[in-house]
Computed example of a mutant assay.
Amino acid sequence: MTTTHDTGPDPRPALVAEDLVVEYPAGHGRTVHAVSGVGLEVAAGETLGILGESGCGKSSVGRSLIQLPPPGSGTVRLGTTTLTGLAPEELRRARARIQLITQDPVSALNPRRKVKDLVWEGPSIWGNGGDTRDRDTRIDTALRDVGLDPGTVRDRRPHELSGGQCQRVCVARALLLEPEVLICDEPVSSLDVSVQAQ
């Protein structure tokens, strides 16, 4: 694991995980132990990178932090809120503060919805969308921030976009909620090298 410290004003932990265990049923009574005893602490303004070979449990750690699915054991705390064990409605509300960008952008997007609606999904659910003009401005700004032309993509559906464009839509959607913690599972893997650098 590599950690980059930001000497910003708020050193409190934004996210703490202790002794995470993630297991998956493998059929015939067998169990795959994907993650065993993982712990981490990330301060506000800090970046934590988890490195490892394919299949070592990096995605399982990321998904367990957001409780999709919850870990088999261990605890996850977002600020002062313990996510593990929350009632479904409380967990749903807490998830607005922590966003996950998955490594498979196409399956993360509803194929029936237009890009503008996908990007605006968070604010529309949580009622912090403002008026229609504010909505359009914020959607267009979010799309431009990830290198997409709003005039070209905002009325398209995911099947009309490339994999890289879908990935950028997922990034824009996650950032628009201004989460306290952003979990990125290979968020630029579908983008070409020049766009990755940008």
Rank of each mutant, 00 (worst) to 15 (best):
K58R: 08
D136H: 14
L20N: 09
G62I: 03
P88T: 03
L118F: 07
P105Q: 06
A43L: 02
G49N: 06
P69R: 01
S60Q: 00
G79S: 05
G164D: 10
H33Y: 05
V153Y: 13
R95M: 02
C184A: 15
V42Y: 00
L68S: 01
L175M: 15
G74H: 01
V22P: 03
E160S: 13
V61M: 04
R93C: 02
D140V: 04
T132D: 15
D136N: 15
L68V: 02
R133F: 10
Q198D: 15
A197M: 08
G85K: 02
T82S: 09
G27W: 13
G39K: 12
V181M: 09
C184E: 11
T75Y: 02
T4G: 04
R113V: 11
T80N: 11
L176V: 08
H5W: 07
A142Y: 00
K116H: 12
N128E: 14
D6C: 04
A44V: 10
E160T: 12
R168P: 11
D131E: 10
V119T: 04
L68M: 02
D140L: 05
P9C: 02
L20A: 07
I98M: 13
G62E: 01
D192N: 10
V146I: 12
E89A: 10
E178C: 08
P9Q: 09
V146C: 09
D136V: 07
P70E: 01
H28C: 07
R113N: 12
G52C: 06
L65G: 00
G49F: 09
I98L: 09
L182K: 08
H28D: 15
G74D: 04
V171Q: 13
D6A: 11
T31K: 06
L51V: 14
V16E: 13
G39E: 11
T31W: 08
N128W: 14
L177F: 00
M1I: 11
H28M: 09
S190K: 15
E23Y: 02
R156W: 07
V76N: 03
E121S: 05
R133H: 09
T81W: 06
P158D: 07
L177K: 13
A87R: 15
W126R: 08
V21W: 14
